[in-house]
Design a protein around this nucleic acid. Sequence first.
RNA 1: GGCCUCGUAGUUCAAUGGAUAGAACGGCCCUCUCCUAAAGGGCAAAUGUGGGUUCGAUUCCCGCCGGGGCCA
Length: 591
Amino acid sequence: MTTIPKQLESRLTEAFRRVLGEAMPEDYGTMTVNASQDLRFGDYQSNAAMVLAKRVKMNPRTLAMKVIEEMGNLSLATVEIAGPGFINFRVNADYFAQYMQDMINDERLGVPTAETAKTIVIDFSAPNVAKPMHVGHIRSTIIGDTLVRLARFMGHTVIADNHIGDWGTQFGMILWGWKNLLDPQALDADPIEALLNVYKEVNKRCKEQPELLEACKAELVKLQSGDDENISIWKRCIEVTKKGLDKIYNQLDIHFDVWLGESFYNDALPGLVNQLMQQGIARESDGAVCVFSDGFHKPEDDPFLVYKNEEWQSVPAIIRKADGAFLYATTDLATLDYRMNHFHADSIWYVVGAPQEKHFKQIFDIERMRGVTGDFRHVAFGSILGKDRHPFKTRDGETVSLQNVIDEAIERAARVVEQKSPDMPSDEKAHVAQVVGIGAIKFAELSQNRLSDYIFDWDKMLSLSGDTAPYLQNSYVRVRSIFRKIGEKRIPQQQTAPSPVQLNAAEELHLARMLARFGEVVPATLDDCRPNLLAAYLYDLARAFHSFYEACPVLRAEEMIQSSRLALCDLTARVLRCGTGLLGIEMPDRM
RNA sequence: GGCCUCGUAGUUCAAUGGAUAGAACGGCCCUCUCCUAAAGGGCAAAUGUGGGUUCGAUUCCCGCCGGGGCCA
């Protein structure tokens, strides 16, 4: 299947070529056609005439007029000129109906696959060992998972990698605490919580007695030099942490292909630093090993320079400190190497907060210096703020763990289920509460522009009405209910579409219009890594369906109309399930 | 101090340089003898400020004011 705007684009481009002939600029590929923001201007529109008019020194309206004449009558849409030179397309109802038939028979529901399938490593979530995930992990975890699902659906090979923080200075305190403070029973009950408490306690004591800090450092040094006991405790910490994390990931239905944490790359670090020095990319400076600017970029684009005291000064990336310790930058370089060599990645996406932007610019720039080429992206996202508009930081006492958020969401959903569907069997009630609660969290996250900061608000994040996951789920449930009433047996026969789809009522036409856009939205969502485009689309689709549902009865309709409406309902349900599935949100049959 | 980023209805968020700036929540009016009212249909309500580029600017550029971040 070819999406409607793509079909229009090729017609439009041909027409422009014929009208302009030699005058057609060589660098102009295809004219773009986009969905109109306002239906008064038709379904699709193109700005091409206005953009090109200046290049070819013509009046935009004159140019548009000639192009429209050249296109002649299209079977799929009527074309008109508007305003300063817009070319507007109003798709014929017959064509939408035909397109619906095609979608019904297409497993991919009109979504094209990527032109070239790539191997993409997506690095997301990445919690620290011995610390529970808190609300701050929501963004990376949920956005990352959606990108994995979208990229796979588009035909790419994806490796979902959880780069956990399993190697760091915090282990000094944890090791000392494990040996001196740990309560084995607490560890069994809730391992991560127990480790966190130990860490907090040691941290507190260190502030009171500085000599304890030395003891912790000594434990860290022992760990780093391979002491058997400390290594085994460290391994236990990772093990119990993973077990705790698995519980949350399973609840969220988020899964990784590999868990290659920081420690996995330890052995590669010394060699990497030596190699960088030999290549002349890194050099010693005050005992540390650093990478400086190589002058490739303009100073203002150079991640290794900063303008200070009226001149550009170096801000090198340190890859080995004077005491021999390695840093995040070193590990990240080793990690990138591994992903390129072992996974043969074409592209690596880092779903990490916006404050890390400079760090990744440096990492990617060092790779450029080394001659490593690939499509490396920092998929950044904004901060989560508290109600006071200050960063939502996890301080003592005000930490909101991700588990708490999930539990609260499911609880709130359970209360609503109890109220709306008291007669539902209790295991189904529990399932619905789970699906609705988790869905609400995910949709709240994914419907925002990932780059904006947002204010964490329980009521908004866990809201169950309005622009939320339950709104989408409810539209799906309404379809299921219709089919339940009409007899489940009819569903499989819909595949062969017994009678043609007809779009008479305005609501039917609008539903079809929205359904047809699915194939445009999914690729666009992945192109810019902007899940909110898909989320907004699905909300609009559900809205179109709810309006249709109110205005166009199905069960009471006469046979031909009923058949057509059932086909629309079923297609809507499929698109909703597929689309929300890409966001990691499930659809219940009843709610 | 330098750099990055953000300022949109009362509130929380949208808007590949496109036409009369969309939603949701909250507020005010309607709609359940009718396929699930977790819904539908209405009403009121916003681009921080001053310039510039453009046929056209919430979007791009410059200045100012204000929030946040990164680096020192």
